[in-house]
Design a protein around this nucleic acid. Structure first.
Length: 498
DNA sequence: ATGTGC
């Protein structure tokens, strides 16, 4: 940006009450960062924003981020660190997508939002693309049946449903194993169970999932659920891909990933469960704001661990309930696809590579250490539209439809709250692309050659490549900033959008 | 994000 334009932008942001510092050097590298805080709150942390090459910062998103960094409960609790990933953009509930905050003695339900545990899941399969394409039509027909018409309702016992909410994937599988018969094959469930041990019981979740309130499901009888095994809308999808290029052979090998393999990537969440719980707790946090004090201007309400530890615990329990539902939803979407792969192409294992939550509250990476446990400081990290990127752990970043996606490894950069982007970042609204009278050609939308399977044409348009930043600039800047490193690049074959 | 909703 020209110095003159930059000065103008900074002055405009200043008029909106923002104190902004711009730098084109970060950590000795030529990277663009903004550091932002509310001018009237100099004692709150400045939020760090990393930007990709060639895209201006959005004032509204900066304001939302500064507001979030300033959230503090009068009874005790504050934000100790805040940042935004390079795909960040304004959110409709006052919190920007791509925001990450670390909090002390408070949790902020609104900073997770209502799309609880939306996230990514990646599988690979030993099948060449040529083999896949030979029976592509049959495979697609069956998947359409599963994803668009098939499993509208999943019926299970109240016991199984409770296990799902309370104990997550491992507990749910145990409950399934108890009465697995017929089409539910025990050996399959046992295999899944082992995968879950690897993913969910590796300590990263700190047992956080065993908190869900029991009263959410009936004691006995059958429960019909309409959300499990459904993709959802917006940017959610299931995509068949090719492992196009392996950049880190050692890690790819360790994770079971090889060049030329078929892969499938799932981006989905907790559907109505998260919406219900996220909305309910946004209201409850507001209602718990101290009587007689005026509301914070941002209307983002924290729950204090000082004045209301029981509300903090209940919220985390409710959030975990929805998170469990999200994990199992992605698992079922993967199982449906794996089932059809086997039917159409023969005995293929299609193992899980990893599964990651985008919208969730986790114990802070620092909270488990000795100093913290002695001082009894409660710390959390809350992400909204950002991917965990802890040292050595897999990171999955999808590009837009038709673009590459990336399997990466986290570098655990504390300046960016051990996080990475959750995608390329939207630059044009759904409304803008779909409004009456607007007509874009396939080429203008970037849809040429994209194999998108959907029942609704508007989905293709709203989610067209032209609606997003190019992924490469977003990946590059995060590699340069030492947040992540590329392990493998994946190219799209076909995409299911509901 | 939400079997969306002015």
């Amino acid at each position: 940006m020209q110095p003159k334009n930059l000065q103008r932008l900074l002055r405009a942001l200043g008029r909106q009450g923002l104190d902004v510092t711009y730098s084109d050097v970060y950590d000795g590298l030529r990277l663009r960062t903004y550091s932002v805080r509310l001018a009237n709150s100099p004692d709150t942390p400045a939020a760090e924003v990393l930007l990709p090459e060639g895209f201006p910062v959005e004032a509204k998103a900066l304001k939302q981020l500064a507001n979030l960094a300033n959230v503090r409960h009068p009874a005790g609790g504050c934000v100790c660190r805040a940042c935004a990933t390079p795909d960040f953009h304004p959110g409709d509930a006052g919190v920007a997508i791509g925001s990450v905050v670390e909090t002390v003695d408070q949790v902020i339900p609104g900073a997770v939002g209502s799309d609880i545990n939306c996230g990514m899941r990646l599988h690979v399969a030993d099948l060449t693309i040529d083999e896949f394409l030979k029976k592509r039509d049959l495979f697609v027909e069956r998947m359409k049946g599963d994803y668009f018409f098939g499993t509208r309702d999943v019926t299970m016992t109240a016991h199984t449903m409770r296990a799902l909410f309370q104990y997550g994937v491992p507990g749910w599988l145990d409950a399934m194993l108890d009465n697995a018969t017929g089409s539910v094959v025990k050996s399959d469930l046992q295999q899944l169970s082992q995968e879950c041990d690897r993913i969910f019981l590796d300590g990263s979740m700190n047992g956080n999932w065993k908190l869900a309130p029991a009263e959410l499901v009936p004691d006995d009888g059958l429960v019909r659920d309409g959300g499990l095994g459904t993709i959802g809308s917006g940017n959610h999808f299931v995509e068949v891909q090719r492992v196009d290029k392996v950049e880190n052979r050692a890690l790819a090998h360790a994770w079971g990933v090889r060049e030329g393999q078929l892969a499938f990537m799932i981006h989905s969440g907790s559907r109505n469960v998260g919406k219900y719980i996220g909305g309910m707790w946004r209201d409850r946090a507001k209602a718990a704001w101290p009587q007689g004090l005026k509301y914070p201007e941002s209307h983002i309400f924290p729950l204090s661990a000082h004045s209301h530890p029981e509300l903090v615990a209940s919220y985390l329990a409710a959030e975990a309930t929805a998170a469990n539902y999200g994990f199992i939803n992605r698992l079922l979407l993967a199982e449906l696809l794996r089932l059809r792969l086997r039917e159409v192409y023969g005995d293929i294992e299609a193992p899980l590579v990893y599964d990651l939550p985008h919208n969730i509250t986790l114990p802070s990476a620092d909270s488990g250490d000795k100093a913290n446990s002695q001082s009894k400081i409660a710390r959390w990290v809350t992400r909204k539209g950002a991917c965990p990127a802890y040292v050595g752990q897999p990171v999955i970043i999808p590009g837009s439809m038709g673009a590459y996606s990336y399997l990466m490894v986290g570098k655990g950069n504390p300046a960016f709250c051990h996080s990475a982007s959750h995608g390329a970042g939207r630059v044009r609204s759904r409304f803008e692309l779909n409004r009456k009278g607007a007509s874009h050609t396939e080429a203008e939308l970037g849809l040429t050659g994209v194999d998108c399977i959907t029942l609704r044409e508007e989905r293709r348009i709203e989610e067209a490549p032209a609606a997003y930043k190019p992924i490469q600039s977003v990946i590059d800047v995060q590699v340069e900033a030492n947040m992540v490193d590329v392990v493998a690049r994946l190219s799209p074959i076909l995409t299911f959008k509901a």
